[in-house]
Design a protein around this nucleic acid. Sequence first.
RNA 1: GCCUGGGUAGGGUAGCUUGGUUAUCCUAGGGGACUGUGGAUCCCUUGACUCGUGUUCAAAUCUCGGCCCAGGCCCCA
Length: 414
Amino acid sequence: MIQRPRGTRDFLPDEMERRRHFEGILRSTARTFGFREVATPMFEESELFVLRSGPNVLKELYNFRDKGDREIALRPEMTAPVVRMFVNGMSNDPKPIKVFYFGQCFRYERPQSGRYREFFQFGAEIIGNAGAATDAEAIALAASMIKALGLKDYRIRIGHIGVLRQRLADAGVPADRTAEVLQKLDKKLYDEARPLMEGMGVAQVDIDDVFALTETVGDVSVLERVPGSAGDYLRELISLLDVMGVRDVEVDLGVVRGLDYYTGMVFEAEAPALGAEKQICGGGSYTLSELFGGEKVFSTGFAIGFDRILLAMEKEGIGYGNEGIDAYVIPVTDDVRPQASGIAASLRAAGVSTDMDIMGRKMQKALKYASGAGARTAVIVGAKELEKGCVVLRDMSTGEQREVPVSDVVSAFI
RNA sequence: GCCUGGGUAGGGUAGCUUGGUUAUCCUAGGGGACUGUGGAUCCCUUGACUCGUGUUCAAAUCUCGGCCCAGGCCCCA
């Protein structure tokens, strides 16, 4: 027996229908915010991702050399491809460019709860503007999506990478070693961050101050302790979000995020019920296009881990009932099968979801099957009624039946 | 890449400690009882020891290794 590749999943019909349902909610939410959907290739030149994330991503990339000797990688995320697409073909479009995407991504990692080698991301990017209004749009969209899905237990934390970067620079951390320190701070590894910074000649008071800064967590009032333009910026952002109805956010200057290209606001959402892999959304403002050969353009974007958010919803018992079908056509005997097929065809042509017995089952089993398939109405096609030009429509929930002329079957469903 | 625990029909399981008949039960799928009316009942039937290796007269059971799953670490764009 052939096994599925490690870290991949099959989606059986029930599961797939559930996924499509919630994808649809995300798509329509994005559209209500004025975003338009885009798609990019499932694979790209490996260099695209190395430029964005650094050479260490290579070990977690599904990459290979193709028959034309090109170095190719399955996309591990979609921000870089979308920005590449912008540079290639949208750079002269009116700004801002608001796009969203949904698709699978691939990472060669060890699978665990909420982590797969093939997984799905839903994301959005606003390209071509920087500012609190832009950031507010992005965060408001993310928050609306989470809310629209019905998730209850989650946190959205907003930080500002510029605050910390500036403070580190003032404290004497060399620019090329900022990332090292940020990585420790991101994980709150103060025991490791302290000797690291001491080694860079940073004074104890500055170290303590940096640590205090990353511990600035809470509602908007904690920003009173944050001096300078970044503090003002976040206050403006939070008050914009407030009038947009997004109030369940907290300030957390300890939100760091790993990558260099973030320029200002950064945010994350997490679902605590998920345990180790609890982050369901991450994003921020950045510039990336100049790395791919375009002009430097300010952008804000985020991505939602679709699989994880579904997992979190499942843990909260957010269910989804399958849609079933409108009609199930049962030919009572084989000799009326042509008439049954004709009726099924006309229902389908009218957009009525219709299935039909093709197993030659007897009435009893056919009704049982129809019930299991979630059919709302059984269309019973038998010789007795056909003589009168009629078929029987049986309501599957009440058991009520009525005879209708064959010519009126379609209108009975519309 | 590392650690822990798992893997028996499509799904859920018993059996494993103490090796020994035809691998248990529930459910599901197909058919029938019922020749034109569903969710019930009964009967028949389909279908499994993750793969390989070693020990043994004999392995689902014991050994080692691979694969996959779950959880945790590293990483997490």
